[in-house]
Amino acid sequence: MKGEKCVMGQGVGSQAVKARAIVQSRDRLKQKGEFPNNGLRSPEAEEGGCGVTGFACNIKVKGRHIFAPSVQMHNRGNGKGGGIAAVGLDAQQLGVDQETLKSDFLLQIAFIDPGVVQDLEEEFIRPHFRVDHEAWLETVGDYREVPGLEMEPPRVKRYFVRVLPQVLGRFQEEVGLSELEPEEAEEEFVCQNTFQINMRYYSSLGEKRAFVLSHGRDMMILKIVGYAEHVTQYYCIEDLKAHIWIAHQRYPTRGRVWHPGGAHPFIGLDEALVHNGDFANYFAVSQYLRQRNIFPLFLTDTEVSALMFDLLHRVYHYPLEYIIEALAPTTEMDFDKLPEKRKGIYRRIQASHIQGSPDGPWFFIIARNLSKQGA
């Protein structure tokens, strides 16, 4: 951790203090329950070959246009997990105004067991958030109407939320985040609340009953046990418009998927990440995250990838160049050809993060909302 402090402290001492405070605030989450497999990936969760696709456009494009490329990579999946993410949505289609779409967290929850809706809302939503809009996602009448879809997908409810001011103030005081700006603290509250929902209704139960699909601003994720193209059909999003679409076909050749939680994409905060490949050092990356009080629950390479990206981007505030170097270190001749100043920076990044860098063949597509940065 010494090297990490050094990297974080380059002209951003206050940010280093904030980052350490966020990491320490998550220590209380250890008390919430036992974590699956103590960071070990079970055989049921192991990855194989997968298919990923995506596109971005300066005009909003209908969801039907992610359908065709998903079908084209149908052979890269085996029906055990498919998912889609959309970023840069159409406010009117979602029943809100543009300001709500831009500023509210779009909390989207998959209810495998609809019987837990009231309990979940009463514990994790109503007491903590101002709910500006909520709605169940439209679906086809019967999942068997979708050719090839063999398992009924979960019902999904969408909430546009902001943390209540009194809740946020109490949270900052109780977990030691008084140094953070309210917006930064609100983001961390949303992430920790999502973790607790998943612990209660997904990880700690033998029967998986509900989990958070996404919670970012102006973005959404949907995933099922099936193929990616089934998502667009079952949830009737062929006409939903967005600037960015990504999709994933899962092919876990060495495992099985018995619920949609293990499918991709996975979330950071305002990011959705899909992945093809396999980490040889999954346990090492998981331990790196656990040392920073980040606890993977879904036991997949893709989940730890999204958590790592969120740590480097939102908590450590690294620019994209440094994030890439932390995830994929520059080596050998490529490193030797770097200017001396950049070599020095990269050495410090590698010293801090090499144990958390994924090892093995991997490929990411990340869709993210950068509206906070004026993008």
Rank of each mutant, 00 (worst) to 15 (best):
G3Y: 10
K5D: 09
G9M: 00
G13D: 15
V17A: 11
V17K: 00
K18N: 00
Q24M: 13
Q24D: 13
S25G: 03
D27W: 09
P36Y: 10
L40M: 07
L40K: 06
P43R: 04
A45L: 02
E47S: 09
G49M: 13
V52L: 10
V61Y: 06
K62Q: 14
K62V: 07
R64M: 05
F67L: 08
S70P: 11
Q72G: 08
G79W: 03
G79C: 10
I84L: 10
D90P: 06
A91D: 14
Q98W: 08
E99K: 09
L101G: 01
K102W: 04
S103Y: 10
Q108A: 11
A110Q: 07
D113P: 10
D113Q: 09
D113S: 05
V117Y: 02
Q118R: 07
Q118G: 01
H128E: 10
H128Q: 05
F129I: 03
H133K: 15
H133P: 10
L137A: 08
E145D: 14
E152A: 10
P154T: 01
V156Q: 01
R158S: 07
Y159N: 03
P165M: 07
P165I: 11
L168Q: 04
L168N: 02
Q172V: 00
V175M: 00
V175K: 00
L177T: 08
E184Y: 04
A185I: 01
E187F: 08
E187N: 12
M199P: 11
S203T: 14
S203F: 12
S203N: 09
L205I: 05
L205D: 09
G206F: 02
V212C: 05
H215F: 10
G216A: 00
G226I: 05
G226A: 04
G226P: 12
Y227T: 00
A228C: 01
V231H: 03
Y235G: 03
D239E: 12
D239M: 13
A242M: 07
A242V: 08
W245T: 02
I246V: 12
A247M: 08
A247C: 15
H248V: 06
Q249A: 05
Y251L: 06
R256P: 09
W258K: 15
P260C: 13
G262C: 03
G262E: 04
F266A: 02
E271T: 12
E271M: 14
A272D: 09
H275Q: 08
A280N: 14
Y282H: 06
F283T: 06
A284N: 11
T302D: 10
L307C: 11
F309V: 14
H313P: 04
Y316N: 02
P319L: 00
E321S: 13
P329V: 05
T331E: 15
T331S: 15
D334A: 15
F335R: 15
Y346D: 14
Q355M: 13
P358S: 05
G360E: 11
A367L: 12
N369S: 03
